[in-house]
């Protein structure tokens, strides 16, 4: 039988190892991708068009498509997400309606992206073809918007809840209407928190692949409008690595992975920076 002190020591060491293993896993994954990819990331890779299905050349049109796609997705999802958050915090008490809304948001958050893809394909690509032109940036963005909605609602709600009640009372006491109070007092105070949520959603949008395989079209060309098919960097990585699969293509996949990881790193750091300023201002 082990003494109590010994098991305490062993447990402590084991838990320290667990903590460090988690960090080590991250370092190994990121380190390996950067190690394989950084060599192939250069100015030409970032600014040239892809050749031979992406196994040669660069990813410029794909970077542009990723930016278009992300902007469009956020433009669709943010108003709905923030609107929902305002309604939940300012207009209702906890009750039947909020329960239904919360159930919807939570259920939506858990659905696998490939199921969103099936839905997007049946609804936006096939049924709404006259509007979306089939596989297109618009179909992809509408699908993507449904996916990030739960995150946006939750983060915006948290941000609006931190605005002190006295701000609202002050505004209402001065004779402002409820809507004026929301627009001129509540939202500006909650803005950094809402922005953090939006930035985090950008990360999700950029990393998404499965749903876009069924809705975005996967074209390598530079899109001219939101009705053109396109592909994002994540999709490009997959298509190049798996469907081309030659060694130069794998190198391009790692280079794309490197660009993705650096982008995500910048996004996370920005979100943390905004959040930190928000917290220090609110307290």
């Amino acid at each position: 039988m082990m003494s109590v002190q010994t098991s305490q020591k062993i447990a402590k060491v084991a838990l320290w190892i667990a903590g460090f293993s988690t960090v080590a896993v991250l370092i190994v994954v990121i380190g390996y991708v950067l190690f394989e990819g950084l060599l192939h990331v250069n100015w030409e890779f970032l600014t040239a068009k892809p050749k031979k299905m992406g196994s040669e050349g660069g990813i410029f049109p794909i970077i542009v498509s990723t930016v278009y796609f992300t902007a469009l997705t956020l433009a669709i999802a943010t108003p709905a997400g923030v609107g929902a958050a305002i309604y939940l915090t300012e207009y209702t008490r906890e009750g039947k309606i909020t329960k239904i809304i919360r159930f919807g948001t939570e259920a939506l958050a858990g659905i696998p992206s490939i199921v969103f893809g099936l839905f997007g394909f049946a609804f936006f690509v096939i049924l709404l073809e006259p509007v979306t032109h089939g596989w297109s940036l618009l179909s992809g963005a509408l699908t993507g918007a449904t996916m990030i909605l739960p995150t946006l609602v939750r983060t915006s709600e948290e941000a609006i809840k931190t605005v002190p009640l006295s701000y609202r009372e002050g505004s209402l006491a001065l004779g402002a209407t409820k809507w004026q109070t929301i627009c001129k007092v509540v939202l500006p105070s909650a803005l950094p928190g809402i922005i953090t949520g939006v930035i985090l959603s950008i990360g999700r949008v950029i990393g998404e692949t499965a749903a876009l395989m069924l809705t975005l079209g996967g074209s390598l060309r530079m899109p001219d409008s939101i009705f053109d098919p396109a592909r994002t960097m994540s999709m490009h990585l997959y298509l190049v690595a798996l469907e081309v699969g030659t060694q130069p293509a794998i190198d391009k996949a790692f280079a794309t992975g490197t660009v993705l990881i650096i982008t995500i790193f910048i996004i996370n750091s920005t979100a943390n920076w905004v959040m930190k300023r928000f917290i220090s201002r609110m307290s």
Partner: peptide, 17 residues
Amino acid sequence: PAVELLAGIPSVVYGLF
């Protein structure tokens, strides 16, 4: 932050790795 970054890495990057 390491855990956060782990959550943010796109699934295709894990797939490639």
